[in-house]
Write a protein that binds this DNA or RNA. Structure first.
Length: 425
RNA sequence: GUGGGCGUAGCUCAAUCGGCAGAGCACUGGACUGUGGCUCCAGUGGUUGUGGGUUCAAUCCCCAUCGCCCACCCCA
């Protein structure tokens, strides 16, 4: 072996996902497909790259995501391009570009895939991460808000993730939010010297964020700050009350968090977050809300819309801790049902034929090509195979293969075609 | 971008005051010629993240750099 001149590793904050963790991902994704499908959502796949302008216009230039976290570059044609930092902008672009508003409302989509943000990695946060999300266009009724939230919770439950809490808030329409910001500035203005440097910056950029500052003094000062719920216009108030009433009626547990803020500029009215206490500082596993103005800002007709996104890595981390799923992993985590040990070249052909028959029936079969019979068996055991089938010269002659159940130690002989029957005993 | 912690075998970790880089697990093979697990034996595996500096001598001390972890900012 010559020593490699260079070694490579994946980029900072952009890790590989290896088995058996990928099995968790598949389980989460299949739960999503099933639940979302039953709610009338179909999958949409949009590019991972979009014009940078798309994100500037949707997420908002003041957001850190756009200001400093985008992977942006200029392509050979001089176009400004960015890797998507979130999924909604692309879906809205596709919705408008393909004139989907002419299809009957509501139009409902879900998506999944990698997102990119140039941030310092920490627990639950990476530079490439994966989201699975849903978007619904053309429904303004609060019933759709409640339905979307319930769909999200049903998905998480179906995926097998427990210990989550749902927080609801309304950040109103641009009118009531603007009024609220002024009330906040009026309240915090006199306290500016006492607030932390970050909050002094927030005071200018987005005073709502002062409300969820983590500095103790800021929390104290903010304790008596006005709440958005007191500033909502009658329409927004009615909408929010209606959403909450529906959740209550459906016995979906939630808590109103009047201090919840969203990171993206496009949200209006309903916003929500699903949190876990087991994820460190990055405790949100899913978040979303209504964005009634974004479609028209993208050149489409005025179209109310709402959606959410869930973080796959965070969900997978939680799911990996579920004891229920640990058991499942032990039973099905990439373990062959049948391990065929051929001895000699002629037996190899017979092993392939036999394996092919079983595999076409969906049985997971491993063939042990290398090593002695002993090492083959040892490997079968380590792989967690249920059944070993041995094919040597004697077996080829008689057509009866030796088998052994590695759990019970039972063994015997059986015709090649009968092997699957042994599995269902 | 800011602050703190940590980098020794695939993994978990040792290495006395600065003095020959080790163990367990894992992997491969053998003991047992065609029957796994248990036991025993052996083997593979390292420029101690990288580059400088101090020193007779550096895994150890110093500097830089890269990476990882945690937190802030921000966010799924």
């Amino acid at each position: 072996m010559t020593k490699p001149r260079f070694t490579f590793s994946s980029l900072k904050g952009i890790p590989d996902v290896l088995p058996p963790e990928t099995i968790l991902w598949n389980k989460i994704e299949s739960a999503a497909c099933e639940v979302f499908g039953s709610c009338g959502y179909d999958e949409i796949r949009t590019p991972v790259m979009e014009p940078s302008e798309l994100f500037l216009r949707s997420i908002g230039e003041s957001s850190d995501i756009v200001a400093k976290e985008m992977y942006s570059f200029t392509d050979k044609g001089g176009r400004g391009i960015s890797l998507r930092p979130e999924g909604t902008a692309g879906v809205v672009r596709a919705y408008v570009e393909h004139n989907l508003p002419v299809r009957p409302a509501p139009q409902k989509f879900f998506y999944r895939g990698p997102m990119f943000r140039y941030e310092r990695p920490q627990k639950g946060r990476q530079r490439q991460f994966h989201q699975i999300g849903a978007e619904c266009f053309g429904a303004s009724h609060p019933g759709m808000d409640a339905e979307l939230v319930m769909m999200l919770m049903a998905f998480l439950e179906k995926a097998g993730i427990s210990g989550l809490s749902l927080e609801m808030n309304s950040i109103g329409c641009p009118e009531c939010r603007a009024a609220f910001k002024e009330r906040l500035r009026a309240y915090f203005g006199p306290h500016l010297p006492e607030l932390c440097p970050d909050c002094n910056r927030r005071f200018e950029q987005n005073p709502l964020r002062i409300l969820d500052c983590k500095v103790e003094r800021c929390i104290e000062i903010g304790a008596d700050a006005p709440l958005i719920s007191e500033s909502l216009c009658p329409e927004c108030r009615r909408h929010f009350d209606s959403v909450l009433a529906l959740l209550t009626a459906m016995k979906t547990p939630y808590a109103v968090n009047p201090r919840m803020v969203r990171g993206l500029d496009y949200y209006t009215r309903t916003v929500f977050e699903v949190k876990s206490g087991r994820l460190g500082a990055q405790n949100a596993v899913a978040a979303g809300g209504r964005y009634d103005l974004l479609v028209s800002e993208f050149g489409g007709p005025e179209t109310p819309a709402l959606g959410f996104a869930a973080g796959m890595e965070r969900l997978a981390k939680l799911l990996a801790e579920e004891t229920l799923f640990k058991d499942l992993m032990e039973k099905t985590g990439g373990q062959p049902e049948v391990f065929i040990a051929p001895l000699g070249d002629a037996a190899g052909a017979a092993a392939l034929v036999s394996a092919g028959l079983m595999r076409s029936r969906g049985i997971r079969v491993e063939i042990g090509w290398d090593g002695s019979l002993k090492s083959k068996l040892r490997r079968a055991d380590k792989m967690g195979a249920k059944l070993v089938v041995i094919i040597g010269e004697d077996e080829l002659k008689s057509g009866m293969y030796k088998w052994k159940d590695l759990k019970s130690g039972e063994s015997g002989e059986i015709g090649a075609a009968e092997i699957p029957g042994l599995l269902s005993r």
